[in-house]
Design a protein around this nucleic acid. Structure first.
Lengths: 147, 147
DNA sequence: GTCGCTGCAAAGCTTTTGCAAATCA
DNA sequence: TGATTTGCAAAAGCTTTGCAGCGAC
């Protein structure tokens, strides 16, 4: 399993090397969805002990430009990477400040231009959306109340 | 002009020092809304040549925890800082990938829980929203078509 | 044989930290 | 005076880059 985007790499005469296969499968098979470069590196090293960190970074960058991955930057921590799916990737993320878990939900279709009173925005062509909500999940909120 | 949040600093026995005043006024009076630490540092140095970069970072962190500033992390560049206003700060950002300009619009009220099919999300308490749309403004899109 | 890819090490950049001196309450 | 803040320099942490060797086509 490589995905259409992965096929694109071959078409562009870029190589589907063992290292790139490893990085791809490690991310694709991970239970965690939002991975640090360091985590991807360590998981890849289990499969391919000689792989270098620079290769990880170069591969992640490649995958991002090819639309296989999305890079996520949250405050106070290194970048994370999330696998994109064919078709709709318009979901928003709910980050619990208590337990650190990340939940996801679809983004409303009409959300993008809502409330636009500004021509610049009414006439804006969106290519990528990134919506992040920070707060507390039920569990953590309940715990906080008990305290 | 200091804002309620700035007053809070005094109440907490934190000091409203010349350096902090400088950083605050430099950001408050800037035309650009989304500033790099480096930009704030250079602007502050014009007013107070001896101010140190570490002081800038420490002040920015303080202002963020006090709710005076919001830290913004976009991929591929250092953190930016945006001044928060009293009351509603729920706006989303449109970043033009052509000219780099950032436009703003209000966020829909009902946006947060829309499409939630998941209990974790239905029952999520949001404290902060961060919505970013990437794409092309009218100008840049038109230019691209001419090419 | 050419071109791209890899691993290693070094460098780069942003941000944080340690500490003595200065400042403020 | 005692606690906080500052500036400088050094360190830390993440990421990128240079380069020689390797591998694919």
């Amino acid at each position: 399993m490589k995905s259409v985007a992965a096929e694109n790499i071959k078409e562009k005469a870029l190589q589907w090397t063992p290292q790139r296969k490893t990085v791809f499968s490690v991310i694709a098979n991970s239970e965690k969805k939002h991975l640090l470069a360091e985590e991807i590196y360590l998981m890849s090293k289990k499969v391919m002990p000689n792989i270098g960190l620079a290769t990880i970074y170069r591969t992640l960058e490649l995958f991002c430009t090819e639309g296989i991955l999305q890079k996520i930057n949250l405050p106070g921590e290194p970048a994370r990477f999330e696998m994109l799916k064919e078709g709709n990737n318009d979901h928003c993320h709910y980050v619990c400040l208590g337990c650190g878990k990340i939940f996801e939900a679809p983004i409303q279709k009409d959300l993008s231009l809502s409330g636009a009173e500004n021509d610049n925005i009414k006439d804006f062509t969106i290519t990528t959306r990134s919506c992040w909500y920070f707060g507390y999940c039920k569990n953590c909120r309940d715990k906080a109340k008990i305290k």
